[in-house]
Design a protein around this nucleic acid. Structure first.
Lengths: 193, 193
DNA sequence: CGGAATGATTGACATATGTCAATGCCATTT
DNA sequence: AAATGGCATTGACATATGTCAATCATTCCG
Protein backbone atom coordinates (compact mmCIF):
# COMPACT_ATOMS: atom_id res chain seq x y z
CA UNK A 1 0.00 0.00 0.00
CA UNK A 2 2.96 2.35 0.42
CA UNK A 3 4.77 1.50 -2.82
CA UNK A 4 3.84 4.61 -4.72
CA UNK A 5 4.44 6.96 -1.80
CA UNK A 6 7.93 5.60 -1.24
CA UNK A 7 8.62 5.84 -4.92
CA UNK A 8 7.66 9.51 -4.77
CA UNK A 9 9.88 10.03 -1.74
CA UNK A 10 12.78 8.44 -3.62
CA UNK A 11 12.37 10.87 -6.49
CA UNK A 12 13.16 13.83 -4.25
CA UNK A 13 15.02 12.71 -1.14
CA UNK A 14 16.98 9.76 0.23
CA UNK A 15 15.38 7.86 3.07
CA UNK A 16 16.84 4.84 4.83
CA UNK A 17 14.78 1.66 5.09
CA UNK A 18 14.29 2.43 8.77
CA UNK A 19 13.00 5.90 8.09
CA UNK A 20 10.53 4.58 5.55
CA UNK A 21 9.30 2.01 8.01
CA UNK A 22 8.94 4.66 10.67
CA UNK A 23 7.08 7.00 8.35
CA UNK A 24 4.43 4.36 7.75
CA UNK A 25 3.19 4.65 11.30
CA UNK A 26 2.07 8.25 10.81
CA UNK A 27 -0.30 7.51 7.95
CA UNK A 28 -3.83 6.21 8.17
CA UNK A 29 -4.55 3.87 5.24
CA UNK A 30 -8.07 4.25 3.99
CA UNK A 31 -10.04 2.81 1.11
CA UNK A 32 -13.01 4.71 -0.18
CA UNK A 33 -15.53 3.76 -2.80
CA UNK A 34 -16.42 5.63 -5.95
CA UNK A 35 -18.72 8.59 -5.17
CA UNK A 36 -17.78 8.65 -1.49
CA UNK A 37 -16.73 11.95 0.01
CA UNK A 38 -13.32 12.55 1.52
CA UNK A 39 -14.36 16.07 2.49
CA UNK A 40 -17.68 17.89 2.35
CA UNK A 41 -18.33 21.61 2.21
CA UNK A 42 -18.76 22.92 5.74
CA UNK A 43 -16.56 20.26 7.31
CA UNK A 44 -13.16 21.14 8.70
CA UNK A 45 -10.48 19.36 6.72
CA UNK A 46 -8.63 17.00 9.02
CA UNK A 47 -6.46 15.24 6.47
CA UNK A 48 -4.00 15.64 3.71
CA UNK A 49 -4.37 12.63 1.45
CA UNK A 50 -1.87 10.83 -0.74
CA UNK A 51 -3.51 8.87 -3.56
CA UNK A 52 -2.07 5.39 -3.90
CA UNK A 53 -4.77 4.22 -6.26
CA UNK A 54 -7.83 5.64 -8.02
CA UNK A 55 -8.57 9.32 -8.38
CA UNK A 56 -10.59 12.12 -6.86
CA UNK A 57 -11.79 15.59 -7.62
CA UNK A 58 -12.06 18.78 -5.62
CA UNK A 59 -14.95 21.08 -6.46
CA UNK A 60 -17.37 23.76 -5.34
CA UNK A 61 -21.09 24.10 -5.99
CA UNK A 62 -22.46 27.54 -6.80
CA UNK A 63 -25.88 29.11 -6.11
CA UNK A 64 -27.32 27.59 -9.27
CA UNK A 65 -26.17 24.11 -8.26
CA UNK A 66 -23.44 24.01 -10.90
CA UNK A 67 -20.28 22.12 -9.97
CA UNK A 68 -16.95 23.85 -10.51
CA UNK A 69 -14.09 21.38 -10.49
CA UNK A 70 -10.85 22.88 -9.30
CA UNK A 71 -8.63 19.89 -9.62
CA UNK A 72 -8.32 16.20 -10.08
CA UNK A 73 -5.90 14.07 -8.09
CA UNK A 74 -4.64 10.86 -9.63
CA UNK A 75 -2.36 8.15 -8.24
CA UNK A 76 0.82 9.67 -6.90
CA UNK A 77 -0.76 13.04 -6.19
CA UNK A 78 -1.66 14.69 -2.91
CA UNK A 79 -4.99 16.33 -2.30
CA UNK A 80 -6.38 18.51 0.50
CA UNK A 81 -8.06 21.79 1.21
CA UNK A 82 -4.87 23.45 2.36
CA UNK A 83 -6.74 26.44 3.69
CA UNK A 84 -9.20 24.55 5.84
CA UNK A 85 -6.46 22.14 6.92
CA UNK A 86 -4.17 25.01 7.89
CA UNK A 87 -6.67 27.26 9.63
CA UNK A 88 -9.09 24.73 11.08
CA UNK A 89 -12.01 26.51 9.48
CA UNK A 90 -14.91 24.93 7.56
CA UNK A 91 -14.07 24.06 4.00
CA UNK A 92 -15.60 25.66 0.91
CA UNK A 93 -14.80 22.56 -1.13
CA UNK A 94 -16.02 19.06 -1.70
CA UNK A 95 -13.61 16.24 -2.40
CA UNK A 96 -14.99 12.93 -3.63
CA UNK A 97 -13.81 9.78 -5.35
CA UNK A 98 -14.36 9.26 -9.07
CA UNK A 99 -13.09 5.70 -8.79
CA UNK A 100 -12.54 3.32 -5.88
CA UNK A 101 -9.49 4.71 -4.09
CA UNK A 102 -6.72 3.71 -1.77
CA UNK A 103 -5.55 6.67 0.25
CA UNK A 104 -2.91 7.43 2.86
CA UNK A 105 -4.15 10.06 5.27
CA UNK A 106 -2.10 12.42 7.37
CA UNK A 107 -3.49 14.60 10.14
CA UNK A 108 -1.82 17.85 11.01
CA UNK A 109 -0.53 16.38 14.25
CA UNK A 110 0.94 13.29 12.65
CA UNK A 111 2.44 15.42 9.89
CA UNK A 112 4.18 17.60 12.45
CA UNK A 113 5.36 14.62 14.47
CA UNK A 114 6.60 12.88 11.36
CA UNK A 115 8.58 15.93 10.25
CA UNK A 116 10.10 16.11 13.71
CA UNK A 117 11.18 12.49 13.66
CA UNK A 118 12.25 12.44 10.03
CA UNK A 119 13.57 15.91 9.20
CA UNK A 120 14.54 14.88 5.68
CA UNK A 121 10.84 14.90 4.87
CA UNK A 122 10.78 18.66 5.45
CA UNK A 123 12.53 18.98 2.15
CA UNK A 124 10.09 16.63 0.43
CA UNK A 125 7.10 18.63 1.59
CA UNK A 126 8.71 21.91 0.74
CA UNK A 127 9.44 20.75 -2.80
CA UNK A 128 5.89 19.46 -3.03
CA UNK A 129 4.51 22.86 -2.10
CA UNK A 130 6.82 24.66 -4.50
CA UNK A 131 5.86 22.39 -7.33
CA UNK A 132 2.16 22.80 -6.58
CA UNK A 133 2.59 26.55 -6.57
CA UNK A 134 4.46 26.53 -9.86
CA UNK A 135 1.87 24.27 -11.47
CA UNK A 136 -0.99 26.41 -10.20
CA UNK A 137 0.65 29.59 -11.48
CA UNK A 138 1.00 27.99 -14.89
CA UNK A 139 -2.65 27.03 -14.87
CA UNK A 140 -3.61 30.54 -13.84
CA UNK A 141 -1.47 31.96 -16.62
CA UNK A 142 -3.14 29.70 -19.13
CA UNK A 143 -6.55 30.53 -17.76
CA UNK A 144 -5.88 34.26 -18.08
CA UNK A 145 -4.31 34.35 -21.52
CA UNK A 146 -5.13 31.25 -23.54
CA UNK A 147 -8.16 30.49 -25.69
CA UNK A 148 -10.28 27.55 -24.66
CA UNK A 149 -8.69 25.44 -27.37
CA UNK A 150 -5.17 26.20 -26.14
CA UNK A 151 -6.24 25.36 -22.59
CA UNK A 152 -7.63 22.04 -23.76
CA UNK A 153 -4.46 21.13 -25.61
CA UNK A 154 -2.36 22.09 -22.63
CA UNK A 155 -4.49 19.91 -20.39
CA UNK A 156 -4.11 16.93 -22.69
CA UNK A 157 -0.35 17.46 -22.84
CA UNK A 158 -0.01 17.71 -19.07
CA UNK A 159 -2.29 14.81 -18.35
CA UNK A 160 -2.67 12.58 -21.41
CA UNK A 161 -4.77 9.91 -19.71
CA UNK A 162 -7.36 12.35 -18.47
CA UNK A 163 -9.61 12.12 -21.51
CA UNK A 164 -10.04 8.39 -21.03
CA UNK A 165 -10.67 8.51 -17.31
CA UNK A 166 -12.81 11.59 -16.82
CA UNK A 167 -16.18 12.36 -18.45
CA UNK A 168 -15.94 15.26 -20.84
CA UNK A 169 -18.28 17.51 -18.93
CA UNK A 170 -15.99 17.33 -15.91
CA UNK A 171 -13.02 18.30 -18.03
CA UNK A 172 -15.04 21.24 -19.29
CA UNK A 173 -15.84 22.19 -15.73
CA UNK A 174 -12.16 22.07 -14.75
CA UNK A 175 -11.41 24.32 -17.72
CA UNK A 176 -14.08 26.79 -16.68
CA UNK A 177 -16.18 26.31 -19.83
CA UNK A 178 -19.48 24.59 -20.60
CA UNK A 179 -19.69 21.02 -21.90
CA UNK A 180 -21.27 22.33 -25.10
CA UNK A 181 -18.33 24.59 -25.79
CA UNK A 182 -15.84 21.81 -25.18
CA UNK A 183 -17.77 19.54 -27.51
CA UNK A 184 -17.61 22.17 -30.25
CA UNK A 185 -13.91 22.79 -29.71
CA UNK A 186 -13.19 19.08 -30.03
CA UNK A 187 -15.20 18.98 -33.23
CA UNK A 188 -13.25 21.87 -34.71
CA UNK A 189 -9.96 20.21 -33.80
CA UNK A 190 -11.02 16.94 -35.43
CA UNK A 191 -12.27 18.71 -38.57
CA UNK A 192 -8.89 20.36 -39.07
CA UNK A 193 -7.11 17.01 -39.16
CA UNK B 1 15.85 48.78 5.67
CA UNK B 2 14.77 45.58 7.41
CA UNK B 3 11.83 46.97 9.34
CA UNK B 4 9.10 45.52 7.19
CA UNK B 5 10.77 42.13 6.82
CA UNK B 6 11.13 41.73 10.57
CA UNK B 7 7.56 42.82 11.03
CA UNK B 8 6.51 40.06 8.65
CA UNK B 9 8.65 37.54 10.51
CA UNK B 10 6.99 38.60 13.77
CA UNK B 11 3.55 37.91 12.36
CA UNK B 12 4.35 34.23 11.90
CA UNK B 13 7.25 33.18 14.11
CA UNK B 14 9.21 34.34 17.13
CA UNK B 15 12.81 35.32 16.51
CA UNK B 16 15.27 36.58 19.12
CA UNK B 17 17.06 39.86 18.56
CA UNK B 18 20.22 37.87 17.86
CA UNK B 19 18.54 35.75 15.23
CA UNK B 20 17.19 38.81 13.49
CA UNK B 21 20.61 40.36 13.47
CA UNK B 22 22.11 37.17 12.09
CA UNK B 23 19.49 36.89 9.38
CA UNK B 24 20.42 40.32 8.04
CA UNK B 25 23.76 39.04 6.86
CA UNK B 26 22.18 36.69 4.35
CA UNK B 27 20.30 39.34 2.43
CA UNK B 28 21.64 41.64 -0.24
CA UNK B 29 19.99 45.06 0.02
CA UNK B 30 19.37 46.59 -3.38
CA UNK B 31 17.64 49.69 -4.63
CA UNK B 32 16.31 49.74 -8.13
CA UNK B 33 14.75 52.55 -10.09
CA UNK B 34 11.36 52.63 -11.75
CA UNK B 35 11.40 50.70 -15.05
CA UNK B 36 14.54 48.76 -14.13
CA UNK B 37 14.48 45.01 -14.51
CA UNK B 38 14.98 42.63 -11.63
CA UNK B 39 14.73 39.69 -13.99
CA UNK B 40 14.55 39.44 -17.77
CA UNK B 41 13.15 36.66 -19.89
CA UNK B 42 15.95 34.27 -20.78
CA UNK B 43 17.98 35.00 -17.64
CA UNK B 44 18.27 32.44 -14.88
CA UNK B 45 16.64 33.76 -11.74
CA UNK B 46 19.28 34.08 -9.03
CA UNK B 47 17.21 35.82 -6.39
CA UNK B 48 14.09 35.72 -4.34
CA UNK B 49 13.23 39.31 -3.48
CA UNK B 50 11.45 40.79 -0.52
CA UNK B 51 9.93 44.19 -1.25
CA UNK B 52 10.66 46.71 1.49
CA UNK B 53 9.44 49.64 -0.54
CA UNK B 54 7.88 50.32 -3.94
CA UNK B 55 6.32 47.69 -6.13
CA UNK B 56 7.02 45.46 -9.09
CA UNK B 57 5.26 43.36 -11.62
CA UNK B 58 5.93 39.95 -13.14
CA UNK B 59 4.82 39.46 -16.74
CA UNK B 60 5.29 37.66 -20.03
CA UNK B 61 5.25 39.02 -23.56
CA UNK B 62 3.48 37.00 -26.24
CA UNK B 63 4.13 36.65 -29.98
CA UNK B 64 2.12 39.76 -30.73
CA UNK B 65 4.12 41.80 -28.23
CA UNK B 66 1.26 41.98 -25.75
CA UNK B 67 2.23 42.01 -22.09
CA UNK B 68 0.49 39.58 -19.76
CA UNK B 69 0.91 40.58 -16.15
CA UNK B 70 0.84 37.64 -13.78
CA UNK B 71 1.25 39.43 -10.54
CA UNK B 72 2.16 42.59 -8.76
CA UNK B 73 4.32 42.64 -5.63
CA UNK B 74 3.89 45.50 -3.20
CA UNK B 75 5.75 46.33 0.02
CA UNK B 76 5.79 43.33 2.31
CA UNK B 77 5.48 40.82 -0.49
CA UNK B 78 8.00 38.41 -1.94
CA UNK B 79 8.56 38.01 -5.64
CA UNK B 80 10.54 35.56 -7.77
CA UNK B 81 10.28 33.15 -10.63
CA UNK B 82 10.12 30.11 -8.38
CA UNK B 83 10.56 27.76 -11.29
CA UNK B 84 13.68 29.35 -12.72
CA UNK B 85 15.06 29.89 -9.22
CA UNK B 86 14.44 26.28 -8.30
CA UNK B 87 15.63 24.59 -11.47
CA UNK B 88 18.35 26.97 -12.61
CA UNK B 89 16.77 27.23 -16.04
CA UNK B 90 16.13 30.40 -18.05
CA UNK B 91 13.07 32.30 -16.99
CA UNK B 92 9.96 32.82 -19.09
CA UNK B 93 9.10 35.94 -17.13
CA UNK B 94 10.13 39.55 -16.81
CA UNK B 95 10.10 41.30 -13.46
CA UNK B 96 10.49 45.06 -13.37
CA UNK B 97 9.86 47.98 -11.04
CA UNK B 98 6.79 50.15 -11.40
CA UNK B 99 8.14 52.54 -8.77
CA UNK B 100 11.57 53.08 -7.25
CA UNK B 101 12.09 50.07 -5.00
CA UNK B 102 14.07 48.92 -2.02
CA UNK B 103 14.59 45.18 -2.13
CA UNK B 104 16.18 42.50 0.00
CA UNK B 105 17.61 39.76 -2.18
CA UNK B 106 18.26 36.17 -1.23
CA UNK B 107 20.24 33.73 -3.35
CA UNK B 108 19.51 30.04 -3.16
CA UNK B 109 22.77 29.44 -1.32
CA UNK B 110 22.18 32.13 1.26
CA UNK B 111 18.60 30.95 1.70
CA UNK B 112 19.81 27.43 2.44
CA UNK B 113 22.51 28.64 4.78
CA UNK B 114 20.10 30.92 6.56
CA UNK B 115 17.60 28.12 7.10
CA UNK B 116 20.38 25.97 8.47
CA UNK B 117 21.50 28.62 10.95
CA UNK B 118 18.00 29.78 11.89
CA UNK B 119 15.73 26.74 11.64
CA UNK B 120 12.72 28.72 12.89
CA UNK B 121 12.67 30.39 9.50
CA UNK B 122 11.81 27.05 7.92
CA UNK B 123 8.34 27.52 9.33
CA UNK B 124 8.12 31.07 8.03
CA UNK B 125 9.00 30.03 4.51
CA UNK B 126 6.71 27.06 4.62
CA UNK B 127 3.78 29.23 5.69
CA UNK B 128 4.71 31.70 2.99
CA UNK B 129 4.56 29.00 0.35
CA UNK B 130 1.28 27.63 1.68
CA UNK B 131 -0.30 31.06 1.68
CA UNK B 132 0.92 31.77 -1.83
CA UNK B 133 -0.53 28.49 -2.99
CA UNK B 134 -3.86 29.17 -1.33
CA UNK B 135 -4.02 32.68 -2.78
CA UNK B 136 -3.12 31.43 -6.25
CA UNK B 137 -5.76 28.70 -6.09
CA UNK B 138 -8.35 31.31 -5.16
CA UNK B 139 -7.32 33.46 -8.08
CA UNK B 140 -7.49 30.48 -10.39
CA UNK B 141 -10.94 29.64 -9.08
CA UNK B 142 -12.08 33.19 -9.69
CA UNK B 143 -10.52 33.20 -13.12
CA UNK B 144 -12.31 29.98 -14.05
CA UNK B 145 -15.77 30.75 -12.68
CA UNK B 146 -16.30 34.46 -12.20
CA UNK B 147 -17.41 37.11 -14.66
CA UNK B 148 -14.99 39.93 -15.37
CA UNK B 149 -16.95 42.22 -13.07
CA UNK B 150 -16.76 39.78 -10.17
CA UNK B 151 -13.03 39.39 -10.76
CA UNK B 152 -12.60 43.15 -10.68
CA UNK B 153 -14.50 43.51 -7.42
CA UNK B 154 -12.53 40.69 -5.88
CA UNK B 155 -9.29 42.36 -6.91
CA UNK B 156 -10.34 45.66 -5.35
CA UNK B 157 -11.35 43.90 -2.15
CA UNK B 158 -8.09 41.99 -1.90
CA UNK B 159 -5.92 44.94 -2.78
CA UNK B 160 -7.80 48.20 -2.26
CA UNK B 161 -4.89 50.50 -3.07
CA UNK B 162 -4.18 48.92 -6.42
CA UNK B 163 -6.46 51.20 -8.40
CA UNK B 164 -4.55 54.27 -7.28
CA UNK B 165 -1.09 52.85 -7.85
CA UNK B 166 -1.42 50.88 -11.06
CA UNK B 167 -2.58 52.13 -14.46
CA UNK B 168 -5.89 50.65 -15.45
CA UNK B 169 -4.58 48.82 -18.49
CA UNK B 170 -2.18 46.88 -16.28
CA UNK B 171 -5.00 45.87 -14.00
CA UNK B 172 -6.89 44.71 -17.06
CA UNK B 173 -3.87 42.70 -18.13
CA UNK B 174 -3.60 41.07 -14.71
CA UNK B 175 -7.28 40.15 -14.99
CA UNK B 176 -6.78 38.64 -18.43
CA UNK B 177 -9.07 41.12 -20.19
CA UNK B 178 -8.54 44.08 -22.50
CA UNK B 179 -8.33 47.68 -21.24
CA UNK B 180 -11.45 48.52 -23.25
CA UNK B 181 -13.46 45.84 -21.49
CA UNK B 182 -12.30 46.97 -18.07
CA UNK B 183 -13.22 50.55 -18.94
CA UNK B 184 -16.73 49.44 -19.89
CA UNK B 185 -17.14 47.34 -16.77
CA UNK B 186 -16.16 50.28 -14.59
CA UNK B 187 -18.66 52.45 -16.41
CA UNK B 188 -21.44 49.93 -15.84
CA UNK B 189 -20.59 49.73 -12.16
CA UNK B 190 -20.65 53.52 -11.79
CA UNK B 191 -23.95 53.82 -13.70
CA UNK B 192 -25.64 51.41 -11.33
CA UNK B 193 -24.79 53.50 -8.28
C1' DC C 1 5.08 77.24 -24.61
C1' DG C 2 3.94 73.32 -27.61
C1' DG C 3 4.47 68.76 -29.30
C1' DA C 4 4.84 63.87 -28.05
C1' DA C 5 3.77 60.10 -25.35
C1' DT C 6 0.69 57.72 -22.35
C1' DG C 7 -3.54 56.25 -20.79
C1' DA C 8 -8.72 56.19 -20.73
C1' DT C 9 -12.93 56.28 -23.12
C1' DT C 10 -16.23 55.41 -26.82
C1' DG C 11 -18.44 53.47 -31.07
C1' DA C 12 -19.01 49.93 -34.59
C1' DC C 13 -18.41 45.57 -35.49
C1' DA C 14 -16.39 40.59 -35.06
C1' DT C 15 -15.73 36.54 -32.48
C1' DA C 16 -16.02 33.44 -28.57
C1' DT C 17 -18.60 31.45 -25.32
C1' DG C 18 -23.00 30.64 -22.78
C1' DT C 19 -27.93 29.15 -22.58
C1' DC C 20 -31.69 26.34 -23.58
C1' DA C 21 -33.96 22.75 -25.85
C1' DA C 22 -33.91 18.66 -28.67
C1' DT C 23 -31.82 14.50 -30.13
C1' DG C 24 -29.09 10.42 -30.21
C1' DC C 25 -26.02 7.06 -28.16
C1' DC C 26 -24.73 3.67 -24.98
C1' DA C 27 -24.58 1.01 -20.87
C1' DT C 28 -27.17 -0.68 -17.04
C1' DT C 29 -31.24 -2.29 -14.92
C1' DT C 30 -35.66 -4.36 -14.88
C1' DA D 1 -36.51 -6.59 -25.16
C1' DA D 2 -37.86 -2.29 -23.08
C1' DA D 3 -36.97 1.40 -20.03
C1' DT D 4 -33.89 4.36 -17.75
C1' DG D 5 -30.14 7.50 -16.79
C1' DG D 6 -25.89 9.61 -17.93
C1' DC D 7 -23.42 11.68 -21.40
C1' DA D 8 -22.22 13.91 -25.84
C1' DT D 9 -23.73 16.42 -29.73
C1' DT D 10 -26.21 19.89 -32.36
C1' DG D 11 -28.98 24.05 -33.56
C1' DA D 12 -30.82 28.64 -32.64
C1' DC D 13 -30.13 32.39 -30.25
C1' DA D 14 -28.24 35.61 -26.36
C1' DT D 15 -24.49 37.67 -24.08
C1' DA D 16 -19.72 38.76 -23.04
C1' DT D 17 -15.57 40.03 -24.59
C1' DG D 18 -12.18 41.25 -28.22
C1' DT D 19 -10.58 44.23 -32.11
C1' DC D 20 -9.76 48.35 -34.40
C1' DA D 21 -10.01 53.14 -35.00
C1' DA D 22 -10.99 57.68 -33.32
C1' DT D 23 -11.02 61.03 -29.71
C1' DC D 24 -9.80 63.30 -25.47
C1' DA D 25 -7.30 64.37 -21.28
C1' DT D 26 -3.06 64.40 -18.84
C1' DT D 27 1.59 64.28 -18.17
C1' DC D 28 6.25 64.57 -19.69
C1' DC D 29 9.88 66.87 -21.75
C1' DG D 30 12.55 69.61 -25.14
Amino acid sequence: MFELLFQKFDEKIELSQGEKLLSKSFFIPKKIRKKQYLLQEGDVSKYTAFVEKGFLRCYTIDDKGTEHILQFAFEGWWIADQYSFLTNTPSRYNIDALEDCELLLLTKESEEQMLEKIPKLERYFRLLLQNSLIATIRRLESSLSDTAEEKYNRLLTNCPTIAERVPQHMIASAMGITPETLSRIRKQISLRK
